[in-house]
Amino acid sequence: SPDNKNATGGDSKLVDGDQHQTVIPNLAAYVHVNPNLTQLFHQVQGGPLATHVSSDLLKRSVPIAVDRAIREIIQPVVERSVSIACITTKAIVTKDFAMEADENKLRKAAQLMVANLAGSLALVTCRDPLHTSISSHLRTLLMNAIENNSNSASSASGPAASASTVVLQEPEKNALDQCVAICSTENLELGCMLIEKAATEKAVRDIDEAIAVTFSIRQTSRRETGQPYYDMTIFQDGRYPKELPDPLRPKPGGLRPDQLLVYEAFQRTPRQPTAPSAQTGSIDGQGARLSNVDQMGVDNQQPPVEGGSLGVSAGVLNLNAINAIAMKLDS
């Protein structure tokens, strides 16, 4: 489909050999790296950290670490959250809307409920593993870079020198730990948001399919008999809901506004990832970023960013790409 083509646009980014691109296009524009972080290494001047870990290296490595961590975690988290949320939503909505003849009301309520539940579950499940995963990928990337750089440095000074493992001293280990911790904490929300969003969107697609019969049976009934459809099976066994008083019971004519309100309360403003307005890297960049959240438009139709123009495309993350990752979960 054209959608999928868009979504995986910039196919070169998917090539495994390309170590410097993120699979999630444009991710670098949303990743926050404090350029002053390298000051952490000043106290260990002369060591491998101060020599080989530059601000540029961090800026290149953090998006890759975030990208790998998201891709590592997103599938099991989204799959589990969406499947649980769909089962719950189907069970609850089917009984509550049994006497609601308007399939659109039923559908909207189900979508709001499933999106909230799946998103909430995904968010609460992904946070810790994502934090751990970003940290571990970033540490590996930085250690690899240090080793490559120091090996190429030593082979330049003497061709006989063979590749060796760099051993960090205690103060350097601490500085690296701190740097990795700051970078992963600062970008954790971004990763969480993307996973939450993938879960929410898949849930809405899946619930439509899961309760498709409840829509069609209502449409068919109206078309063929001219009568609204009521699911009377809920009164078949047991004392309840038969014996419930009117205000509590599913009734012909459908849900009252106050009952619908419960379902409308599942609505939340989904958080959207936004790029830092300027990569100044000030410590309070975080605050500025969060306050931007509501103002940033997210354009689902936006064509993929071509070539190397990462990060300059109006600060909008290409959500088709995220959707593409979530789509893969469907197959």
Binding site: D96, N116, D128, P241, L248, V262, F266
Partner: peptide, 29 residues
């Protein structure tokens, strides 16, 4: 004694209880 089936079958009740649960997830971590 009938609280459980009344809660379950009352329109919107389980949905409301689930909202209560999901709404505190963000304060867990």
């Amino acid at each position: 004694p009938d609280l459980a089936p009344i809660l379950w079958h009352t329109v919107g009740c389980v949905a409301a209880l689930l909202q209560e649960i999901a709404s505190i997830y963000p304060s867990l971590a």
